[in-house]
Write a protein that binds this DNA or RNA. Structure first.
Length: 226
DNA sequence: GCGACAG
DNA sequence: ATCTTGTCGC
C-alpha cells in the first residue's frame, strides 16, 4: 500500500512531539465513512523482553467472508519511551512500515489505541490515519482521558466519553458481562461510524476481530526480533 | 503538592 | 507493553 511522503520526522523530544501534535490536530477530518466496508485492517505491536526491539503487525479482515485476506509485519528498534499522550512517537513508525507492505489498501483501520479521545485530540489512531490519509478508528482497552458513566449492559450500546462539555468518544459494550472498550474517531470517520465499525467486527470476544488477530500475529513473532 | 496516565 | 501459575467461574 502506498503511503504519502513523510510530513515530519520522528526523532523528537517530548516537548517537540507535543508541539507537533498541536500543529497536526487541525488536519484531522471527521467525515462519513463510505459504507459498506469490506476490508478492515487491525494493527498491534509486541516488544522484546528487554524492550529495545518491537514488531508491528497488520491483519486485513474481510467482513464478508470473515477470513484474513492479507497480513504484514515490520520490525524496528524502539526509539521513544512510553509517555502517556505520546504513544504515536513510539509505535507509529513500525505500524506504518507494516502497512506499507500491504498489497491492497484496506477500507478502514482499527488501532489498539485512542484517536480523538486524547489530551490534544491526536491519539495514535488519528495520527497514523492522517499520515496514511486513510479512515481510522481508535479502539482502546482502557481510558487515557475523559469521564463517563457505566455503559448499559446490552452489547452495542455505549456511554459517551466526555471531556467537559465535549463528547470525545464512546465507552462501548461489545460483549455481555465484560469491561467495555474505548472507541473514538481516528481520521475520516464519524463517531457513529467508529462504533458501528467496531461492533461489525466483533464476534465472540471483547475486542474486535481485526485487533485480536493482529495481537495474535505479533505475539507469535515476539521471539524473532531479527 | 498529589493523583492520573492508550501501549 | 512485559515479567508470570494457579485459580475462580461458567
Amino acid at each position: 500500500m502506498r503511503i504519502p511522503r513523510a510530513i515530519h520526522r520522528w526523532s523528537l523530544t517530548p516537548r517537540q512531539a507535543i508541539a507537533l501534535q498541536q500543529r497536526l490536530r487541525g488536519r484531522v477530518r471527521v467525515e462519513p465513512l463510505v459504507w459498506p466496508v469490506r476490508r478492515v485492517a487491525g494493527a498491534d505491536m509486541a516488544f522484546s523482553p528487554d524492550g529495545r526491539r518491537c514488531v508491528a503487525g497488520v491483519v486485513v479482515y474481510d467482513l464478508q467472508t470473515h477470513e484474513v485476506v492479507e497480513q504484514a509485519l515490520a520490525w524496528r528498534d524502539v526509539r521513544f519511551p512510553y509517555v502517556p499522550g505520546l504513544l504515536s512517537f513510539r509505535e507509529a513508525p513500525a505500524v506504518l512500515a507494516a502497512v506499507r507492505k500491504l498489497k491492497i489498501p484496506p477500507d478502514a483501520f482499527i488501532l489498539d489505541a485512542q484517536g480523538y479521545s486524547h489530551p490534544r485530540r491526536l491519539g495514535l489512531a488519528s495520527h497514523v490515519g492522517l499520515l496514511m490519509e486513510s479512515p481510522t478508528v481508535g479502539c482502546a482497552k482502557s481510558r487515557l482521558c475523559g469521564t463517563h458513566d457505566d455503559p448499559p449492559a446490552w452489547p452495542g450500546t455505549f456511554a459517551p466519553l466526555r471531556d467537559g462539555d465535549e463528547v470525545i468518544g464512546a465507552v462501548l459494550r461489545t460483549r455481555p458481562g465484560v469491561k467495555p472498550v474505548y472507541v473514538s474517531v481516528g481520521h475520516r470517520v464519524t463517531l457513529d461510524d467508529a462504533v458501528r465499525l467496531v461492533m461489525t467486527c466483533v464476534t465472540r470476544y471483547r475486542v474486535c476481530e481485526p485487533t485480536r488477530l493482529a495481537h495474535q500475529l505479533v505475539t507469535r513473532h515476539r521471539g524473532d526480533m531479527d
